[in-house]
Structure formats: C-alpha cells, structure tokens
C-alpha cells in the first residue's frame, strides 16, 4: 500500500473511532426508554456498520473492540466491559457474515447486529450471574433489538450512500 493511502486510511479510522467514542458518551448520558438492563438505542452501531460497509471487516472489528475497551474504562465499569464485549463480538461476527453472504441490506445487517448484541449480553449475564433465568428478558430484548437495529440501519444506510463520494 502506498504511504499516502495508508495515512488516509489511518486518519479515516481514527476519525471513525473518535465518532464511536462520542456516540458511546452520548448514549451513556441518555436515559433508556425501557428500564430493562441491556435495552438501548445502540448509536455506536451507526459507526460500526458504516465502517463495515465502507472499509471492510478488519476495520470494523478494530473500531468496535477499541470502542468497547475505552468506553468501558471511561464511562462504565468492569461488569459493563464484559457485557459490551460479549455483545460486540457476537454482533460483529453475525454482521460480517451477513454482509459477506450479501443476504441483507444495511437495515437487515443492523437488525441482526442489534439482536445479536442483546443475545451476547444475555449469554454473558448467564455466565456472570450463573442463572439461565436471565433468558426471561429474551422476548423484550428481541423486540427492542429489532426496532433499534432497524432505525440505526436506516441511518447507517443513508450515511454510507452519502459518503460514497468521499471515496474512503
């Protein structure tokens, strides 16, 4: 890769990472609509999906995992780190696969990402709390993840389209 291309890529990734951190911060300050642990809008996923669509899987993995690490240190606690990590890994894996097999558009990818994030967190809660009883929340988290994922997906699709001319 030419030096200028590498520099450009590094700058873009840094900007996207900074954006993901800002969204994390905003989200940590927003009250949740439904008082159930794990229900949230998932604003950061706009950045992750955008990165996945325009720069590819390795970049999306880097931005997502770095964000989980740094936002847990800055805005969360140790428990938050494990929940976010489980959600992020499962969500990334499924989003990358569904993009790879071209099954869904950005909206579908995002819906799967949202739902899988919630399922990853539930599985982590199962491990940490040691009880399968956390699955009680599965129905609500499925619905919340789908709705939030669809909204986030629409936003990410719109942004990716607008950013095509940037030639990232």
């Amino acid at each position: 890769m030419k030096n200028s291309t590498r520099l450009r890529r590094m700058t873009t990734l840094s900007l996207l990472f900074a954006l993901a951190m800002i969204f994390s911060f905003v989200e940590s300050r927003l009250p949740t609509f439904i008082p159930i642990p794990g229900v949230k809008l998932g604003l950061c996923n706009v950045v992750i999906i955008f990165t996945l669509l325009s720069l590819g899987a390795p970049s999306a993995i880097a931005v997502s995992l770095l964000r989980v690490l740094l936002s847990s240190i800055l805005f969360g606690n140790a428990a938050a780190f494990f929940y976010s990590l489980a959600g992020a890994i499962l969500s990334l894996a499924v989003m990358i696969l569904s993009k790879h097999f071209r099954l869904f558009s950005a909206v579908g990818i995002s819906v799967l990402g949202g739902v899988m994030h919630n399922i990853g967190q539930l599985l982590m809660a199962w491990i940490l709390l040691g009880t399968a009883g956390v699955m009680y929340y599965l129905p609500v988290l499925l619905i919340a993840g789908t709705v939030a994922g669809a909204l986030i997906g629409l936003l990410a699709a719109y942004l990716s389209k607008r950013a095509e001319s940037l030639k990232l």
Partner: peptide
C-alpha cells in the same frame, strides 16, 4: 430485510 424484521418481532 422486511422478512427478517417481521419474523424477529413475531418470535419476540
């Protein structure tokens, strides 16, 4: 996408 969304909502 639509089928995915509707089936997830239905299951939930």
């Amino acid at each position: 996408d639509l089928i995915l969304i509707l089936s997830l909502l239905a299951i939930g």
